[in-house]
């Protein structure tokens, strides 16, 4: 299975993602944002980081890169696109995902492990995961997901809320909301469910001796859909 990680100036989780994808059997290639086309892939990943120094708005400048047109075509073809952290911000800025990621409510950069609840498992990202709650890592300044009430209703009706912040028992409430995100949203899908954007970093949880293993479950599940 082939994957491509797109690198923007200021991306900094691209190599971790490369290690994770290769560990679970993807034949991964790194692609510079200025390439006019994406090489043949089954999965495209937009990694975390601070593309263009977060100038203007996080992800806004990367969202106008040359490669984005080819990314849009890729999405239309129904293949999988995953955006982590800054990658999620880029996907909202391009309009491929609804909503926007605003500054954290407490104005602090948050770097810690959190629990997330899988809200929708009828998609290729979470379909065969047995656990309902995963422990993943977050590190962001702008992870406060927001959308209008109308949009919220639409994404709820279409079952697009993929994951929400929760406690170890899977309870999602204000107490377990690290950044002020509306409805504790940590990740959303597009309507067709082939694009996922999420703030947590599964690529940082792929070694049970170093960090935790729940990221492994996530990548193994994606790969399982190609077998």
């Amino acid at each position: 299975m082939k994957s491509s990680v797109i690198i923007f100036p200021g991306s900094n989780c691209d190599r971790d993602m490369d290690v994770a994808l290769k560990k679970f059997g993807f034949k991964n290639q790194m692609v510079w944002h200025n390439e006019p086309e994406i090489p043949k892939s089954d999965l495209i990943v937009l990694p975390g980081g601070f593309s263009y120094g977060d100038y203007l708005r996080c992800g806004s400048i990367a969202g106008k890169s040359k490669i984005i047109n080819s990314l849009i075509d890729f999405v239309k073809s129904g293949r999988l696109v995953l955006g982590i952290c800054n990658g999620f911000q880029i996907l909202t800025e391009t309009g491929l995902l609804p909503g926007v990621l605003q500054r954290n409510k407490n104005l602090e950069f948050i770097c810690k492990n959190v629990f997330i609840k899988i809200n929708n498992n009828s998609n290729s990202f979470f379909n065969n995961i047995k656990k309902n709650v995963l422990k993943l890592h977050i590190a962001h300044n702008e992870g406060n997901y927001f959308c209008s009430n109308d949009e919220l209703k639409t994404i709820e009706d279409n079952n697009q809320i993929a994951i929400t912040y929760c406690n170890s028992e899977g309870l999602s409430n204000e107490e377990n909301n690290p950044n002020g995100a509306i409805k504790n949203i940590a990740g959303v899908l597009n309507k067709e469910k082939n694009v996922l954007g999420m703030m947590p970093h599964p690529e940082r949880m792929i070694d049970k001796y170093l960090s935790g293993d729940d990221g492994s479950i996530f990548f193994e599940n994606i790969l399982g859909n190609f077998k």
Binding site: R57, S60, K64, G99, V100, Q102, F146, C147, S148
Partner: peptide, 8 residues
């Protein structure tokens, strides 16, 4: 197209 994000 760029300077404002009309969602917010």
């Amino acid at each position: 197209k760029l300077l404002a994000n009309l969602v917010i």
